[in-house]
Design a protein around this nucleic acid. Structure first.
Ligand code: ZN
Ligand code: ZN
Ligand code: ZN
Ligand code: ZN
Lengths: 136, 136
DNA sequence: AACCGTGTGAGAATGGTTCTCATGCCCAGG
DNA sequence: CCTGGGCATGAGAACCATTCTCACACGGTT
């Protein structure tokens, strides 16, 4: 028997609205922020549903999730290929970046210490030019 | 007037116990785990105090903190020089690793995109040899 | 159009972390 | 040594993001 029967994701107004909103935002946003934005614009969506939609999108690889320093999850529409992020601490604006050397380095250093099933996470935080200018 | 009057950290049984416990553990542990361990061994310490002691140690640069995938904070006694971690997903065992190239890469890629005040976080997760062997 | 099963939503529940505040005790000064 | 001011402690309440519950709505397929 084939392993996983794909449950077939159902198309609903709520899920469409969440993905559409993420598509027009260019930074990481928390579920609560997204929920508030949807409510403001009239597309009322339950908070629990926002969480569920985001989780589904993450599972499908359409959205990346990041943990803020205080532990809140933030979500962003991202390309499906492996990459890392350069994130503005102030406005959330994000640039996707890739670096093959660090990929190889992570695999090598893990192997040297006998670790298997290796994964890694690398994020860069800073203040973008616009926010740095606005701050003064 | 000099900027910050150092409040002078006070030496108490509880803070000593927390740091001593961390010194004999070699992996990242959550505050709740540390609290349970202290209670087991008779050195009763309030949970809130464990959190406060850990926060103080982090502020002093004696301890590193890591956010698990579910958002829990885990703490580990670490060397004060900048480094990253190779962490076993299963037992928490951790190896400190350094990689100057990635430091330079992070600074360069950030500068190219106009970002300032750059910081980065890089962690590698895997299954250590001992846990891989025990699993079968 | 009818049915089945998944999706939704409001509120309750969960669980890690922080806050409150009355009491304890470290330690500099005398 | 003794004392006093003030930071530290602890038990429990408060907080808050996230998840769960469950009755009801509705997508998609026959
Ligand atoms: Zn991404
Ligand atoms: Zn990578
Ligand atoms: Zn460390
Ligand atoms: Zn580094």
């Amino acid at each position: 028997m084939s392993a996983a029967e794909v449950p077939a994701r159902r198309q609903t107004r709520q899920r469409t609205a969440v993905l559409a909103l993420l598509d027009e935002l260019d930074g990481f946003r928390t579920a609560q922020e997204l929920h508030a934005l949807l409510r403001e614009r009239g597309d009322g969506v339950g908070l629990a549903t926002v969480y569920r939609a985001l989780q589904a999108l993450v599972d499908d690889g359409l959205v990346d999730v990041l943990r803020s320093e205080v532990g809140e999850a933030a979500y962003r529409r991202c390309s499906p290929v492996h990459h890392h992020h350069l994130v503005c601490r102030s406005c959330g604006r994000t640039v996707e970046v890739a670096d093959p050397p660090v990929e190889r380095w992570a695999a090598r250093v893990a192997a040297e210490h006998g670790f298997a099933d290796v994964q890694h996470q690398l994020e860069v935080f800073g203040t973008c030019a616009a926010c740095a200018a606005a701050r003064r």
